[in-house]
Design a protein around this nucleic acid. Structure first.
Length: 668
RNA sequence: GCCCGGGUAGCUCAGUGGCAGAGCAGCGCACUCGUAAUGCGCAGGUCGUGGGUUCAAAUCCCACCUCGGGCUCCA
């Protein structure tokens, strides 16, 4: 409470203006004084940099920013408050339930619970939980902030073990650690405190806030699913039950979100892969192992051929290596120490030799390097391979083509001197971005992954050198750089190129890793100009990541409508009647001669049905030939995405138009 | 690996203890058509797999395989 005895206070707003208010005014009063609409949209505020409730009293000189419901920050408040309502609903339906944490996440929120007697939620429970939540919203319960000492907090949550653990964490850290969603403030005396928000006599939740003033502000939400989640994300600890929901500021925003979800489902590469006859996952083969059908195989080949051409131009040399190897190779590389659980189990031959399917290509490329003595004159040596690797992914994680057990990497390893490393990384990053742009991806940001604590090999100094080299190059590209602490591989730090697709989702694409370890383990060397032996630096890099994953990203990015140069069928020629089949075949022939992948669909079905089929298969050009075209040497052109078919286009003109559009970017 | 939900015709799905269904796709015949579905007919299933309960199982129980959503992990 303010002890200010003056009649008025002055607070400043983000636009620099100041506003005079009666002493004792709250954030809510401030919002009302500024405008009705702002007061209605306000859900919380940031006062002197700290998130604050609307009901908190302002002090003189405060700098205030009102948080409205139509901002990401505001939605997070709505979602977090909705999570509290979920917790109240669950604890009222299942007396004795423990609740752990319930934060806002992108598009929604979740709350983790443990039900008494080992009971578990099922999907059917979501409906009645949601009904109970709506009752709580209708009751318009206030969110009342309470401040407690550690001892009082432990007492208040005596029957809530997870809350007590959070409070104990706050206590140990002296109130300075941003521990989950608990308040971390310190009281005037420096003694740690925790805060909680109370809705009713019975329901109170440990929380740093802020929250909306009352549950009546909520309501545009939906519970979406139930899942398992480990306490504190640690698979060795208790598995809790997580309920996910989505929440928005209005019914229309909620509807828009559901529409976006449908759009994402419409673009799902697993669905499109089946619909467009691109690939499948036969049960007979095994989980996470795809087979590509002719059309999918064709798209893959075009992608790979284009990549090969670009790699040739960028000075790469092509190598090949087998899919299996004796265990010694992975012993030396360290994979068996660090990556064994990601590998398929070994095969034992002749009761003596143990072979492994390769999970990575690097050791093989190292053997190519080491096959003879190397001179500094050969460096940088860039060895490239479309290398198929096999990784034993845990059964719960395989997912379409984006998370598989067998994949082909567009993998290369660059061996260079330390002096060359900076320039090599620089040109490499340009190469990556140019290639991704050729495939139609436009928006990127970079992520720098640093040393994983406890899981890394090598000295601090080596990690430092490699990390800094990557950081310098990343910063020079003018792209957003995000830090991923501890996200590096065991042998070195990495930059990953993240891309945003057509509907704003982000995907990890290319990775560039500096490796100061494997050259040592394999005792790689080159002879320098000084006639001494030196240790080369090794850079691992995959631009597509894996061909399968990149295929999936492109498929979703384009919603199945690949750009013409990647489309399996680029033009579909339709004779109006049987009598026009010769003309259709002639047009197909001319297109094929110009390098266009053209097919004919004969007149056994009505024209409208064949056009529809072509459209559903997302063929870039559906071409119709009939009587008028026989006479005039023309064709009717129905281009994908255009609403008006063109009639009477001269065949020669069409061929020229498609010739360039059907070719890969650099061939135009 | 763990939690929740699925697996019925090539695809999408209906079928809660009593004769396995629909639409689309496929095949056949007819139709020969100018820009998003021509008509008629036919064929197609060990109801994921294996056990069990029952007079009787797609349906109830158990185990396994597999798919989806999460946790964890990652290209």
């Amino acid at each position: 409470m303010s002890t200010d005895t003056r009649e008025e206070i002055v607070v400043s707003l983000p636009d620099g203006s100041a506003r005079r208010l009666p002493a004792g005014s709250t954030v809510s009063d401030l919002a009302s004084s500024i405008g009705k609409r702002l007061a209605k949209a306000a859900v919380a505020a940031v006062v002197d940099g700290a998130p604050t409730d609307l009901g908190s009293t302002l002090v003189d000189g405060a700098s205030v920013r009102i948080v409205t419901e139509e901002s990401d920050e505001g939605r997070a408040v709505l979602r977090h408050s909705t999570a509290h309502v979920l917790a109240q609903a669950v604890t009222s339906l299942w007396p004795g339930a423990s609740f752990a944490i319930g934060p806002a996440v992108s598009d929604g929120f979740y709350y983790d619970f443990e039900l008494p007697g080992g009971e578990r939620f099922s999907t059917e429970d979501l409906g009645r939980i949601e009904l109970r939540m709506r009752e709580i919203v209708a009751a318009d319960q206030p969110f009342v902030r309470e401040v407690h000492s550690i001892a009082d907090g432990l007492e208040l949550f005596a029957s809530q073990p997870y809350k007590r653990e959070i409070i104990e964490g706050v206590s140990r850290s002296g109130g300075t650690d941003a521990e989950l969603d608990a308040e971390t403030g310190t009281a005037a005396g420096g003694e740690p405190v925790v805060t909680a928000y109370r809705n009713t006599e019975e329901f109170v939740d440990l929380c740093r806030g802020p929250h909306v003033p009352s549950t009546g502000r909520l309501g545009h939400f939906s519970l979406t699913r139930v899942a398992g989640a480990y306490w504190r994300g640690d698979e060795h600890r208790q598995q809790l039950q997580r309920i996910y929901g989505t929440a928005w500021e209005s019914g229309s925003a909620l509807a828009e979100h559901l529409r976006r979800m449908e759009e994402a489902e419409r673009r799902d590469h697993r669905r499109l892969g089946a619909e467009l006859d691109l690939f499948s996952f036969p049960e007979e083969v095994g989980s996470g192992l795809a087979v590509f059908h002719p059309k999918g195989g064709l798209v893959r080949r075009v992608m790979e051929d284009y990549s090969r051409a670009r790699h040739v131009a960028a000075g790469y040399e092509f190598v090949n290596s087998p899919h299996i190897t004796k265990s010694e190779l992975f012993e030396v590389s360290g994979h068996l120490d660090w990556f064994a659980e990601g590998m398929f189990p070994p095969m034992t031959l002749d009761g003596e030799h143990t072979y492994y399917l390769k999970p990575m290509n690097c050791p093989f490329h190292i053997l190519v390097y080491r096959s003879r003595q190397r001179s500094y004159r050969e460096l940088p040596l860039r060895l490239f391979e479309f290398g198929s690797v096999y990784r034993y992914e845990k059964s719960g994680v395989v997912h379409g083509l984006t998370r598989v057990r067998g994949m082909t990497q567009d993998d290369a390893h660059i061996f260079c001197t330390r002096d060359q490393m900076g320039a090599e990384l620089d040109s490499l990053l340009d190469f990556v971005l140019a290639l991704l742009r050729d495939f139609g991806l436009e928006e990127f940001y970079l992520e720098l992954s640093t040393r994983p604590e406890g899981k890394a090999v090598g000295s601090d100094e080596e990690w430092e050198v490699a990390t800094e080299a990557l950081r310098t190059v990343a910063l020079s590209k003018g792209l957003e750089l995000v830090l991923d602490e501890g996200g590096g591989a065991f042998y070195g730090p990495k930059i990953s190129v993240q891309t945003r697709d057509a509907i704003g989702r982000t995907w990890q694409m290319s990775t560039i890793q500096v490796d100061l370890q494997l050259p040592q383990r394999f005792e790689l060397a080159y002879v320098g100009a000084d006639n001494n032996r030196h240790r080369p630096v090794m850079i691992h890099r995959a631009l597509f990541g894996s061909v399968e994953r990149f295929f999936a990203v492109l498929l979703e990015h384009y919603a199945g409508a690949f750009p013409t140069w990647l489309s399996p069928v680029q033009a579909l020629v339709l004779p109006v009647r049987d009598a026009h089949e010769q003309l259709a075949a002639d047009v197909r022939g001319e297109l094929r001669a110009a390098g266009v992948r053209a097919e004919v669909a004969g007149a056994s079905e009505p024209l409208g049905a064949r056009i529809r089929r072509g459209k559903l298969e997302k063929v870039p050009y559906v071409l119709v030939v009939g009587d008028e075209d026989v006479a005039a040497g023309t064709v009717g052109v129905n281009a994908r995405g255009s609403s008006e078919p063109e009639r009477g286009v001269p065949v020669a003109e069409l061929v020229e138009r498609l010739r360039s559009e059907a070719a890969p970017p650099s061939g135009r």
